[in-house]
């Protein structure tokens, strides 16, 4: 997680060098580079900060443009001045280390997953086919996709409760919810959606067990199922990793 966090914030730290270089080398500083890359990066980062719930760290990535400005300033200054070979190679080495850092942070971290070395099971079906993951994830995912394919065809419309976007691509069934992200029943948005899109209303609901996907930190599957049962739904199938209910 620490590596992933660093990979997100590295562009910001690199971009910070640019204003420092501006102060140090005011006379030879390229305001053109600063204005073309650093300022748009700053405003983009602000936009991401305002448009997401990932806080300041999560909004750091647009500063990759600012990082480009920092590198341009550093190397341009380095080659334009007679600082001597030693200085030139030192600065070049710093930039190469930076490039290596970006490469490591691209290759090594696995977003919400185990380390690369543990990803040795190949997925063969569904939208994730061709990817390697942990044997546990591979078994869980494959079983869910197989069960969903047995339960639904292209004539069906289905809503998946909990956060499991992959399921919408696992079969040819139509999406019958306002979002393919996390459906939280207490928000009432699903009901609002059916009111404004009656043609989308489905009687087929899948409630995944809480360990499927992420973000499922709200109601347990049992509590969710009870909510539907009190709304006249009945359970038509209890699969290994989800419950299929219908009205």
């Amino acid at each position: 997680m620490r590596v992933l966090s660093l990979s997100i914030t590295l562009p910001f730290y690199t971009a910070l060098a640019c204003p420092v270089l501006m102060i140090l080398f005011w006379d030879s500083f390229s305001f053109e580079v600063f204005a073309a890359f650093w300022l748009p990066a700053l405003f983009s980062s602000l936009a991401v900060y305002l448009g997401s719930n990932n806080a300041v760290n999560g909004a750091a990535y647009p500063f990759i443009l600012g990082s480009a400005a920092s590198i341009a300033m550093l190397l341009s200054y380095n080659y334009s001045k007679s600082g001597g070979k030693y200085m030139q190679y030192t600065v070049l080495a710093v930039c190469l280390v930076l490039l290596a850092g970006f490469a490591v942070f691209r290759i090594m971290p696995v977003y919400r997953g185990d380390s690369l070395g543990k990803l040795n099971a190949r997925i063969n079906i569904g939208p994730a086919a061709g990817l390697y993951t942990t044997p546990q994830n591979q078994m869980l995912y494959s079983r869910i996709v197989e069960d969903l394919r047995a339960d639904f065809t292209s004539r069906d419309s289905v809503a998946y409760i909990q956060c499991a976007p992959f399921a919408y691509m696992a079969t040819d069934a139509h999406c019958a919810s306002h979002t393919v992200w996390w459906i939280r029943l207490h928000s009432g948005r699903l009901l609002d959606y059916y009111r404004t899109n009656p043609a989308k209303k489905t009687e087929k609901i899948i409630i995944f067990n809480s360990y499927v996907g992420v973000h499922n930190d709200g109601d347990s599957e049992d509590a969710l199922i009870m909510k539907f049962i009190t709304d006249n739904y009945v359970i038509v199938g209890v699969r290994e990793h989800y419950t299929f209910i219908i009205k």
Partner: peptide
């Protein structure tokens, strides 16, 4: 080569699946 090799590794249940599912929904 490293980027191409790395593309085969890791399955994310949430965000990355969401990007693809959203596009799939528009396509549908």
């Amino acid at each position: 080569a490293a980027a191409a090799w790395r593309a085969f590794y890791g399955f994310d249940w949430s965000d990355e699946s969401y990007y693809a599912a959203l596009t799939s929904r528009i396509y549908a």
